[in-house]
Design a protein around this nucleic acid. Sequence first.
DNA 1: ACAAACTATGTGTTCGTACACATTTTTACT
DNA 2: AGTAAAAATGTGTACGAACACATAGTTTGT
Lengths: 352, 352
Amino acid sequence: MDALEWYCMDKKYTIKDIAELAGVSKGTVDRVLHRRGKVSPKALARVEKILKEIDYQPNPIARNLKNNKVYRICVLMPDPKEDAYWSPAVQGIKEAAREFKPFGVLVNTYYYYTSEKISFIEKSKEALNSSPDVLLMAPVFQKEALEIFKHCQEAGVSVALFNNLIEEFSTQSFVGQDLTQTGRVAAGLIHKLVDNSSTIAILHIDEEKHMSLKENGFKAFFEGRSFTPEIKTFSLQTSNYEAFKKQSIDLVKNTNTISSVFVTNSKAYVFLKAISGINKNLTIVGYDLLPENIKYLEKGHIDFLIHQKPKRQAYLGVGYLAENFLFGKPIPEENLLPIDIITPENVMYYLD
Amino acid sequence: MDALEWYCMDKKYTIKDIAELAGVSKGTVDRVLHRRGKVSPKALARVEKILKEIDYQPNPIARNLKNNKVYRICVLMPDPKEDAYWSPAVQGIKEAAREFKPFGVLVNTYYYYTSEKISFIEKSKEALNSSPDVLLMAPVFQKEALEIFKHCQEAGVSVALFNNLIEEFSTQSFVGQDLTQTGRVAAGLIHKLVDNSSTIAILHIDEEKHMSLKENGFKAFFEGRSFTPEIKTFSLQTSNYEAFKKQSIDLVKNTNTISSVFVTNSKAYVFLKAISGINKNLTIVGYDLLPENIKYLEKGHIDFLIHQKPKRQAYLGVGYLAENFLFGKPIPEENLLPIDIITPENVMYYLD
DNA sequence: ACAAACTATGTGTTCGTACACATTTTTACT
DNA sequence: AGTAAAAATGTGTACGAACACATAGTTTGT
């Protein structure tokens, strides 16, 4: 392919070019492109012929310049002060906001408390009061999310989701992970590390809704296999820390066939701290790159962490919306991010 | 934060707004912004005061519209017909080209043959003949790359690299992976799966330059640890397949303390095919998501694959350049992509 | 046949930036 | 003081798409 061919192939045609080629004015070309009618069959045919020949694509930059609108995105998510898992998500939002601000996309973030369902609704109302173009939310509560969705529809605000999927919102845009599959990934890892005769513990700490999906996936991995290990499920609360510590130690010490633990959220470090006095070689798989988890990963106490990519989820959530506003890029309906497996040797590439 | 505050914070100021606020004309503001001089100290002070107050950022869209240039990127990379590793990279290039074409960024790809050094130089000349704005290349050959770099400088064409780093090009932009660290990742995985008494084989198939880095990283992982396993390095050629097969079988059968094999490139599947007759439980870690490798991964014969992300490397290589052209976004000097660990349970998210 | 009513088509302006060019103001020197 | 040169400042246009509006061309009705 030589330079000449290149030039011919990819000359950037404008409406003016098309108008000249078809022997009409740019107004007529515009009417054909936008099906605004008021075009004679003769002119229509000539313009369409040219359009077919050159594969015209409008310049998205010029189009947006004319639109000249300020787009507003409200983000509604759990307060990172309450759960450090959300801190990277805030970072992702901030980065995207910075990147798209010069283009006229404004982002405003509202935090709710996962300990108070009512704050979710309240903050959503606050967000809607600023009448954004779209509400991007990480909805921890299903029922309340549906209520908010109704409010949005009434206010003419579209909705996008990240991190937590609401089944009933099938048509909405979603960026997140298949949590069930993350359970399978964890099972695959543990399966490689321990022998089939030992018992595996699934440990839920401060149970939340999404954890059962992970448990299901974990168990599903072993279904239909010839040797299936024994799996025991535990559910502990950290609210009473002394009780939690005692139960954790019991789990490790007295249930002595347990060789591995799958912690279904980011709190593996809490468990490890609780059992720090005990010298037992456990295989541990947990979630999320919290600083405390990374510390235990690098010390070799956690074998693998599964990365839920909160930062990327949030960044993409905003980015998809912005690029759709600005350049008409279609928004993926359901974007399930890769399930990254983290070891001490590759963890640095997933931070920041 | 209410709607009013929002409005005040993020009003989109234009040059015209600034001119009015400072009581000068937009021409003067323009001269201040671009340091074109010919501005009285009085006017300069007034404009700069306003600029400081409002944190003005020019509209990248309008700026680009004015520039109205067609940007040309030539990509120079190994022919995917020769090595399937490169096929996803071609996909990445194609996707980026499609995405940025409406913005006036044109991409043309040239393939060279890794079996013929001369074709690398030849194709680079062909690429330079079309006088692109930048040459993005995956340089397998160091010495030849430097020569091409000289040609580019003479022709005023800037250079960006992906996949293969050339040490001497320290100032150039690079998208790729730290290959030494991938070796450490592989070692970490094998270390978890096998006991320290067994022997680990490092297997180079059809040796290339980059493999030694992986070997170094692999060995470095064990340095300073209390129990270090024995590591044996093998180097086989597939050009004579019968000999290769015999050597492979020898490796597995006769060197019978070997419990795990680290294949330093994408050809793990070739090795597994060669030893398919032998029933021995080997731990195998290899590279790259070739269909044949995935087949063996899903059958459980390969334990882990390390994903070198050729598609993303190529996509980002083009994307960074395009966004720099279009919106003046800075190009990261060295972007080392995460080293993804692939199992049968997460492989689907890394494909396509 | 001629105006009214309509259709078809062309022209002009806007968006925000960048730069060329025109105009005004200041400075320097006879 | 008067004028030329220099400096400062303002004005206008282009980029490409979108749309409002003006004009040209055609049909209809009396």
